[in-house]
């Protein structure tokens, strides 16, 4: 087993996640797709901790931090979703265009 297989898998998952995040219309799904992208990155970190230039436990520590931050992000994202839903009664991304000038 080489590092390439893991990196390619991570790249594929990241591309799929990004695709979903940019095309899906449901805000919940967009959030989930972002989680998928974070997972792909975590996979990279862990792969590097075993096969990297300086293989060490540090990669795993980093992935732990990353998971923690992802959890925080998911919590805040969902809270914003709920708040928006309460105001606009929709979870469609295209209805959230308050930034339009």
């Amino acid at each position: 087993m080489t590092v390439h297989a893991f990196l390619l898998l991570a790249a594929a998952l990241f591309a799929l996640g990004l695709f979903g995040a940019l095309t899906k219309r449901n805000t919940v799904i967009v959030l989930i797709c972002i989680e998928l992208m974070l997972n792909a990155v975590n996979l990279n970190l862990v792969a590097f901790s075993k096969f990297g230039v300086n293989p060490a436990i540090t990669g795993q520590i980093f992935s732990l931090f990353s998971i923690t931050v992802a959890a925080a992000e998911a919590a805040v994202g969902l809270a914003i979703l709920i708040a928006l839903y309460r105001n606009k009664a929709t979870v469609q991304v295209e209805d959230m265009n308050e930034m339009k000038g």
């Binding site: 087993m1 893991f6 898998l9 975590n42 996979l43 862990v46 792969a47 901790s49 075993k50 795993q60 992935s63 732990l64 998971i67």
Partner: peptide, 10 residues
């Protein structure tokens, strides 16, 4: 996959 990469805790 993490298990395969010797990262049981993760």
């Amino acid at each position: 996959l993490y298990v395969m990469l010797s990262a049981e805790f993760v």
